[in-house]
Design a protein around this nucleic acid. Sequence first.
DNA 1: CGCCTACTTGACTTACTTCAAAAACAGTGG
DNA 2: CCACTGTTTTTGAAGTAAGTCAAGTAGGCG
Lengths: 241, 241
Amino acid sequence: MPHSILVKNLREHSKLADEDVAGITQLSYVVRQFEPNEDVIRQGDVPKAAALVLSGMVSRYHLLPNGRRQYLAFHMVGDMPDAQGLFIDQMDHSLCAMDTAVIAFIPHSDLIRLFRERPPVSFAIWRETLIDAAIFREAITNNSARPVLARMAHLFCEIFYRARASRIVRQNRLPLPLSLVQLGEALGMAIATVNRTLLELREERSVDFRDKTLIVIDWEKLSKVGEFDPLYLHVKKNPPL
Amino acid sequence: MPHSILVKNLREHSKLADEDVAGITQLSYVVRQFEPNEDVIRQGDVPKAAALVLSGMVSRYHLLPNGRRQYLAFHMVGDMPDAQGLFIDQMDHSLCAMDTAVIAFIPHSDLIRLFRERPPVSFAIWRETLIDAAIFREAITNNSARPVLARMAHLFCEIFYRARASRIVRQNRLPLPLSLVQLGEALGMAIATVNRTLLELREERSVDFRDKTLIVIDWEKLSKVGEFDPLYLHVKKNPPL
DNA sequence: CGCCTACTTGACTTACTTCAAAAACAGTGG
DNA sequence: CCACTGTTTTTGAAGTAAGTCAAGTAGGCG
């Protein structure tokens, strides 16, 4: 099960030969479930295995000296949110489950061995980490250069677009286990502003987020408001809504 | 010359065997000089060679629909600012020279061949791209969660710390070819605010940036103001100032 | 010397934050 | 099923950090 999820996800961006897939299928792993808000790995930890999200949503965050949290990225099925741990010893950020999440841990040693035997597999996972980096870049721009309305619209676009690529969107509805506080901690805005911005987006009928559910009302409008261009996600084009 | 710069830089974070170094020495390249503000690669391009900075400073930036620029990262000697192009076709951002910069271009085909022969070299360069990503993450937090004074202090800390690791700092002085406008476009703040913040930092005697030169007056104070913790740079500890 | 660009400064505005309190909701136990 | 508690969302009013605008100074260069 974890193997096929990983293969499916890698194939979204990379070509894999049968031997590559065979190699992946040999990887050992341990599965564990995490409760909402439970940390998967913490800043400072030195992981010996890489996490693969099997279900649920996990996110990466920084903890600031004053206790404030800054969410950095959201991850869903098929993602390896700490693949960087493969080549960087110490975690510079933490990883936590947003809702109940199931995670497979694949030992680094297994992965490194496979990388040596089948370089194309290493290229595929490397590529995933590069797409992560592209998403980080976009977040810098989003949080630094766009006013709150566009900023929130952009984040919703990104999450929705990626979720569609992962086939976890039904119609135009997406379960999104985020509180307003967390949304604010991702976008660098105060909770009051989060709420008001949310209402504004709802009122202009582009997107409606409530009850942990994101409903895209008007994709065209939403992506225009958010100045969203999916190029940076390097995903095969999603079919039009 | 390019080969030894690359080796030296990779060895800052990775172990390389003699065979790895030998392989790197075989890489072909073309050198070109860029004038201040000249683009090295543009958003949308599909590079066939990877850039290696031999001298000068280059930076990565996004261009927004309204024409605003968002600087994403600054790179100096030994960096490969578009290593991601190796596994991601289209550039989602641009690269430009801040001052006169000399750059070596190494064909992707050469690099990929070397990666297959000597996986440790691919791991070393992969690691570099992962450190880049860590820097992006920190930029998200910096620009989203810190007030302007801390934000600017943090950026100066990061640049100074990395420059020290690259041995391009003399005493406590670092040539830094940035205008106030560009500084603002990196930190997501208006130019007037940049100037006032700069004056404040100067007045409190932590750092003095003018005439394209950064002078660190009080490193302790500066890193405290900027909440700077170099963990995320994953650099061997710099000797104390 | 004049022109251009980069920096500086002040006055005014505003987008967003902070604070505070109310309303809605979810979970728990009697 | 309903009171009780805690959490999340909503709303309002007041404050402020940073942005905008505009004008001035200084420096670099043909």
